[in-house]
């Protein structure tokens, strides 16, 4: 399959089951909502070492947000429910409770409820106040700038992590430009996040390592500097590869995001040095969800 001169490999991305939640952070203005949201989703690129994968899903205007202030939707993914609950609580407590004017609300009602402000309320040292509004329980925790308002729980649902595709280009700037175009398009898709810095990862990994302590190591088959040194997947004209990893609430969400992202990357075309689109195929070692590139782009 060729799109705009870019070859779409006959391969698939391999993804695995996760648990996910969404929260909404509001603040006095969008700047402070972003401060809290960026802090909360920081150091959350990969479950390999961060404990969770998190990112900003989208902005909410004042009409959409629960308290009528500008807001940000943040999604957090983890390998299990307990881990997700722990990450959520830690990040909410250290990044949103602490952030001036921020309030924190549930971003999904589906699935199993997990604590949001349920335990954070104890920061109030007995001065916290509960309010039940339209069947939802909120906590008002006194803090030095006024009150931290938070909902008691948010929903946790089954989700999928590790959807991905690779952009193979003739040069590093061209690979990055195509990746940026893909991410810009994918940010318009709901229910997905791209958790790596700027949505792009340059250090794609393979499962396992020669070192027993490591569960993942560099994807040498796609490292351009190793073309003559390992069993490479790269042709001589490929100088740089970048990966976009997608976590989503469903297979359909990930497929949509991949289609939009690949189309945007291919939009740069062969004339801009984009040669191939491939994917992280780990031969079934990574997970049960397979996203065939050519099917998605058909």
């Amino acid at each position: 399959m060729i799109i705009n001169g870019v070859q779409i490999d006959n391969t698939f991305a391999e993804a695995f089951p996760m648990r996910a939640t969404r929260v909404i952070i509001t603040a006095q203005n969008i700047k402070w909502a972003y401060h809290a949201a960026r802090a909360m989703s920081g150091f959350a690129t990969s479950v390999i070492a961060c404990g969770c994968e998190a990112s900003i899903e989208r902005e909410l205007d004042a009409k959409e947000s629960p308290d009528g202030r500008p807001g940000i939707a943040v999604m957090i993914f983890a390998m299990g429910g307990k881990g997700l609950a722990k990450q959520l609580e830690t990040r909410a407590g250290q990044c949103v409770l602490t952030s001036p004017t921020a309030a924190l609300f549930a971003g999904m009602r589906d699935g199993e409820p997990i604590p949001l402000g349920k335990n954070l309320r104890y920061f109030g040292d007995g001065f916290q106040i509960s309010k039940r509004i339209n069947g939802k329980r909120y906590w008002r925790v006194p803090v030095m700038d006024g009150e931290f308002l938070t909902e008691e729980t948010t929903g946790m649902v089954k989700a999928i992590g590790g959807g991905n595709f690779l952009i193979l280009a003739e040069s590093q700037p061209q690979a990055l430009a195509a990746s940026e175009a893909a991410i810009e398009a994918m940010h318009k898709i709901p229910n997905v996040i791209m958790p790596f810095p700027g949505g792009v990862v340059r250090s794609g990994s393979k499962v396992g390592s020669k070192y027993k302590a490591l569960s993942a190591s560099t994807n040498d088959a796609f490292c351009p500097t190793l073309k003559g040194q390992t069993r490479t997947e790269l042709s001589p004209d490929i100088e740089s590869v970048m990966e976009i990893v997608i976590d989503g609430l469903s297979e359909a969400d990930i497929r949509t995001a991949m289609r939009v992202g690949i189309a945007a990357a291919c939009g740069r075309g062969a004339e801009n040095g984009i040669r191939r689109i491939s994917a992280g195929n780990y031969g079934g070692k990574l997970g049960p969800f397979l996203f065939h590139l050519q099917e998605i782009m058909a």
């Binding site: 308290d67 509004i133 909120y138 009150e147 308002l149």
Partner: peptide, 25 residues
Amino acid sequence: THTLGFLPLLLRGFQEFETRFGALA
């Protein structure tokens, strides 16, 4: 004297009922 974030939320919650309190949000 304070601006309390929960108050608009509380009053907006009353908008589904037939009461003047909803309009105070």
